[in-house]
């Protein structure tokens, strides 16, 4: 849930951001201390950019000792893929791409024509985790995003089917994170669990972090579909009867282009985005994610299967 705060979102006293940063750094260092083969999931979205920034700070002046992986549906915004590659090469990190297209070609998953590839990512992710023998998988998911995610632990054990059992989670006490697991199991780790959308933007501003341009207002050809503004791309052509218009928009979340909507916006920089986020009356995923709209338990069901 995104908080609405009075007046300017930019507060001079940013103690709370330092608190959140210290907590995240502590968590990331615990991963390095407790696991042999951690991997950071990096999509080029703002949450994973912030997580990678925190990892760089956690290990400074050493380099980040983790692998970096993107589960690529093949339907991503080209601006984000370009940013992803440039950003990682600046940090001196090597990217592993786990490709949903390859999973489809290998017959591991089957695409339903006209449906988003978003749920197919789970199989690709789990295959990559076992192929690389990753034992800790760091994700940028936040508890405020969605009510099933609000029930997630910081260290969350997945069985050898990658399943999340929300009714049988380990109690998580103090800041003692328990990463013990059996062979074949792995642990999902969410260092920015306690951050809100507003915290992420306030931190992006404070730290001067670069994010892909599509997070800021730009002109784009869009159609109205299912109450969302969907950008016209090669995978999302206009359907019969839909009118294409050019609007000033930005993205609040960046995922697969086929299920991520844009919002009308004039916020061209981080200060304007902060103000807009503080005043928004619609949640981040509610505004922009078709994948959460299918049912009251859509996210819980995907998470149980091993989704991010």
């Amino acid at each position: 849930m995104t908080a609405t705060i009075d007046s300017a979102a930019v507060r001079l006293d940013d103690t709370w951001l330092t608190d959140l940063e210290d907590e995240a750094i502590h968590i990331i260092r615990e991963v390095a201390g407790q696991f042999d083969r951690p991997v950071i999931l990096f999509s080029g979205g703002k949450d994973s950019i912030v997580m990678l920034h925190l990892a760089a700070k956690a290990f400074w002046p050493s380099r980040v000792p983790f692998a970096v992986m993107h589960v690529d549906t093949g339907h991503n915004f080209p601006e984000v893929i370009e940013f992803r590659d440039r950003h990682l090469s600046q940090l001196g990190l090597v990217l592993t791409v786990a490709s949903v297209q390859e999973s489809i070609d290998a017959g591991r998953v089957h695409e339903t024509p006209g449906q988003t590839r978003n749920p197919l990512q789970t199989v690709t992710l789990l295959d990559a985790i076992s192929a690389h023998r990753f034992d800790a998988v760091l994700g940028g998911a936040r508890r405020d995003e969605e009510k099933a995610r609000a029930k997630e632990r910081v260290f969350s054990v997945r069985d050898d089917f990658g399943q999340w059992d929300p009714r049988n989670q380990r109690p998580e006490l103090w800041d003692l994170y328990n990463g013990r697991h059996r062979p074949g199991e792995h642990v999902r780790v969410f260092p920015i669990s306690n951050w809100t959308e507003l915290d992420v933007w306030a931190y992006i501003q404070r730290e001067g972090i670069e994010v892909p341009g599509i997070y800021y207002a730009h002109q784009r050809e869009v159609v109205h579909r299912d109450g969302m503004l969907l950008g016209v791309t090669e995978w999302t052509p206009p359907r019969d009867g839909e009118t294409v218009t050019t609007e000033w928009v930005r993205y609040r979340t960046v995922g697969d282009a086929t299920c991520t909507g844009a919002v009308l916006s004039s916020a061209k920089d981080v200060v304007a985005v902060l103000a807009e986020t503080a005043e928004s009356t619609i949640s981040e995923r509610g505004a922009t994610r078709a994948d959460d709209r299918s049912s009251e338990a859509a996210m819980e069901d995907r998470k149980r299967q091993g989704y991010f």
Binding site: A3, D144, K147, A148, A150, K151, P166, R167, S193, E296
Partner: peptide, 24 residues
Amino acid sequence: VDGLRAEREQGITIDVAYRYFATA
């Protein structure tokens, strides 16, 4: 706040849920 299907069905809260809000 009852984020899990079983919670909504039974009308009870089963697991700890974290919520975030801010005031001025």
